[in-house]
Design a protein around this nucleic acid. Sequence first.
RNA 1: GCCGCUUUAGCUCAGCUGGUAGAGCACAUCAUUCGUAAUGAUGGGGUCGUGGGUUCGAGUCCCUCAAGCGGCACCA
Length: 668
Amino acid sequence: MTKPFHIRLPDGSVREVEPGTTPADIAAAIGPGLAKAALAAKVDGEVRDLNRPLEGDAELALITARDEKDALELVRHDYAHVLAEAVQNLFPGTQITFGPATEDGFYYDFAPAPDRGPFTEEDLPAIEEEMRRVIARDEPLVREVWTRDDVRAFFEKQGEAFKAEWVMELPAEETITMYRSGGWMDLCRGPHLASTGKLDPQAFKLTRVSGAYWRGDQKNAMLSRIYGTGWLNRKQLQQHLTRLEEAAKRDHRRIGQDMDLFHLQPEAQGSVFWHPKGYMIWRQLEAYMRRKLDAAGYEEVKSPQLMDARMWEASGHWGKYRENMFVVPDEVPNTEAEGPVISGEGDWMALKPMNCPAHVQIFKQGIKSYRDLPLRLAEFGCCHRNEPHGALHGIMRVRQFTQDDAHIFCRADQVVEEVRIFCDLLDGVYRDLGFETYEIKLALRPDQRFGSDEDWDRAEQELRDAVAAAGRASDEFGWEELPGEGAFYAPKLEFHLKDAIGRTWQVGTIQADTVLPDRLDASYVRADGDRHRPVMLHRAILGTFERFIGILIEHHAGRFPLWLAPVQAVVATIVSEADDYAREVAAALAAAGLRVETDLRNEKINYKVREHSLAKVPNLVVVGKREADERTVALRELGADVSQMNLGLDQLVERLRKAATPPDLVRD
RNA sequence: GCCGCUUUAGCUCAGCUGGUAGAGCACAUCAUUCGUAAUGAUGGGGUCGUGGGUUCGAGUCCCUCAAGCGGCACCA
């Protein structure tokens, strides 16, 4: 193109420019301030390099640090590049692979030189220093269009097998670009900042190293990944590091130990020892869920832990899920000192990894009529799954867990309505538990699955329809479809909670399953007397108690809502003369149904206030001689301002009784 | 399961180049009865994750296994 063309700017003005003009030229023409601040350009909505010539009429916006989202992504991608260059400077023979921007920073995956081994955290300070030198050199980042074969030849010559492999797999229509910074080159789609010097050398930090599989596949080589966090300026970095510290303080493992809620130990790897205080939270949560389920027309059941392998063969778990199951022999172990403990000749049984097959057995007892549907069978079902060692994490990811599970057996034409009702139930529960927002995803058929494509088509569509009917298939709920993520027997809706510091956790789910009723031969009798397969909806709201309580701990940072708090009030004395009165106050609170303790120790009130505050006791009821004489209390609430309230004993009991009422039992 | 790191008192951690364990908190005893985030004194407490090796001698060096942590893969 040789003729001038027109560029429209965000303020609506239009500039006529000559071919070869770059966004940087336009920025400079507008003003030196903008030229300096510009990081990249948005051309017809696509982020591009500042120095990449414009090709024709277009809308142009210049990206500066004010456009935080775009700017951060650019900057992080550049930090990743600088990281790669720095590593190759310091460790010749290291191969480069991928290095994208992430949520709060960047990483780069390397194949270390054979004589070197993976990177360790001890390498990081030196790499950071080298990165600062690369930034200080302020090399321009130059975009070049190459041919596929040239790129391959280039990388093969350099001994870069991974890059050479990757370029050959890029889509044929893709323009292949290389970025040059000084003498260093990388295959990269871009865009990038104009030069490395645009980065703030004090706004990044390398945070950790880890292994990562080449292209995310377990069968491939293990690469060495270096993570960093990167920002536009030093202040943002500091804020981020502070946020990380705050998040660490919320860690459920730390709080669980500090508040004496539970513990884990190697002899029961992946299973939780619940202490009295932790189990009190569980009991409150379970009681709440039971009330909600009762009210929603569910019937609670309890099913066996151990079932014969034949049952799991019939359900399909034996074939598709066995590597996650704890299988045990149905055989008396040998108690002789010598010889094998078991001969292996007995039948096999397995601890249940799911409750569904057992619930089908309950459904199948007797003949079910269409009039019995929907039948909603609920169980706080304790399941075991043999999770890989590396997957275990505190009480969030364990091997023994209890689901708030239920299976709704219904007619095909009831599915959409049942899913809609479920969405409302779940919504109310999350709100009661203090979560304002959650996201909904639809996980579609996986490669490994049972059932016909027609069944999957229908089941997937029904879940879509139901979410739409519930009014939740919108951006507000982060609606998204996830190909290949479904369970082997059914597609599933996933409900992801967003916690107080913005992390998301998958908890609730509902799955529309026609496969299992068929495999296990469940049927109901229709009005015309024919037998039909029911649809089975697998569903959970909390997911598991273990994981959910972990989320609650981190969400509330241990400061549970009063109705869930293990200890709701401590009555602490100032002088021992008030001991008898303190016992009376505690007894009155306990009689009103509150979980209360007394602290009559011979310690200063400062000491007691500090200790119970750190223990996150929601209400501290202080009594001294004055209160004992006047039959009042001084109430100090956790988290509120330090001012105390002076109340009569009756007022206190009424106030706390009301405040501690579970949300579903509150009557206005 | 894979990669890296870690494992010392109930908890959090110190222990340099190998010479036979230390702090704070917690706990116990005593004194103190003190009005809203730590009163003081004294004391008890550790086969230094497991098993092996090197050495005159190992918490310190090497190997094995295990668990924990951060990721990857997997997943509620």
